[in-house]
């Protein structure tokens, strides 16, 4: 089941092409939309909500056609925009209840739900204050509350940690993670902050210059081709490296007492060769892990276009 299927979507602002033949599938769960500033992340979100009309291509969101079912899509989706936004002259609870009514909730349900959601988002007694008096952190929370009030099936979060202090950022990420992993709400988080995405999401879609650069599970994206292993030795041993190379492994690089080796076979086969080389060279192994890149390295590789996109099984492109 996918929450969104995007097919050859092209969006233009005058002569500037913001999304160029963009295709991808966003599966259920928490997905990060990664890309540098101006990559087209916000444009994609706006297009999925029908704010912007695509020049060509189409998409389904929650199984509803984007062109013919914009209203139905908006009823199933909650948007937390990047910029501060509120309805002037209202307190937080009035604002969130009003957002619920706009989404189609009966007034009394909207009010009850507004209290619940604001409590959940940590606004406590501050919910009776006018939103215009709120701090940046509180404004972020109320944006999330208004997006959540009608119980959306898909939550679109555009830079949810923008302007937050470290503690506020932690709280917001915890909140988003709980919503996506414990409450069954699908989440698409747009951000250029890799640690935020890594913390909250299981999958990523990397966008660059309006095009899909990579898409898939974060752990797959971080995996290095050829499955090299990192061996941590008690102390540096040239003999161990020589023995391993003599047995057919490739020495990729070393950093202090950590040696990265790559074998032609599976990681299990590599492991056996490593232990044989250690026995022969009298080296003491302290650790053995499959080597992986950081998300930052994976992201930089993806946007540099060095490797072809990592795709989920069944992804159309």
């Amino acid at each position: 089941m996918t929450v969104a299927t995007i097919r050859n979507l092209t969006v233009r602002y005058g002569n500037f092409t913001a999304l160029n033949e963009f295709s991808c599938e966003i599966p259920e769960g928490a997905t990060g939309l990664l890309g540098p500033n101006g990559a087209g992340k916000t444009t994609l979100i706006k297009t999925l909500l029908g704010f912007i009309t695509a020049a060509s291509g189409n998409a389904d969101v929650m199984g509803i056609d984007l062109i013919s079912g914009t209203r139905q899509i908006r009823q199933l989706v909650g948007l937390m925009p990047e910029q501060d936004c509120h309805i002037p002259g209202l307190s937080a609870v009035q604002f969130v209840a009003y957002a619920g009514e706009l989404a189609g909730m009966p007034p009394e349900q909207a009010l009850r739900r507004a209290h619940e959601v604001l409590e959940y988002c940590g606004l406590g007694e501050a919910r009776y204050r006018n939103v215009e008096t709120y701090s940046t952190g509180m404004k972020q929370r109320i944006k999330l509350a208004q997006a959540l009030v009608h119980g959306p099936k898909l939550l679109l979060l555009d830079e949810p940690t923008n302007g937050l202090d470290p503690q506020g950022r932690e709280d917001m990420l915890d909140l988003v993670k709980t919503i996506s992993h414990s409450k069954g709400v699908n989440v698409l988080v747009s951000s250029h902050l890799l640690p935020d995405i890594e913390r909250v999401c299981d999958r990523v879609v990397v966008v660059m210059k309006g095009q899909l650069r990579a898409s898939g599970l974060i752990k797959d994206l971080k995996r290095i081709e050829g499955q090299p292993v990192d061996i941590e030795l008690k102390e540096w041993s040239q003999g161990f490296i020589s023995a391993a190379v003599a047995k057919g492994l490739t020495h990729v690089h070393s950093h202090r007492t950590t040696v990265r080796l790559q074998g032609p076979g599976t990681p299990t086969e590599t492991q056996q060769i490593v232990f044989q080389a250690a026995r022969e060279s009298q080296a003491q192994i302290r650790g053995f892990v499959l080597a992986e890149r950081t998300l930052e390295e994976a992201f930089l590789t993806a946007i540099a276009g060095d490797t072809p996109p990592v795709l989920n099984p069944g992804v159309t492109q």
């Binding site: 009823q75 948007l79 925009p81 706009l102």
Partner: peptide, 9 residues
């Protein structure tokens, strides 16, 4: 506020 209004149905 238009972002709030127009993100709803």
């Amino acid at each position: 506020a238009l972002l709030v209004y127009l993100s709803k149905p």
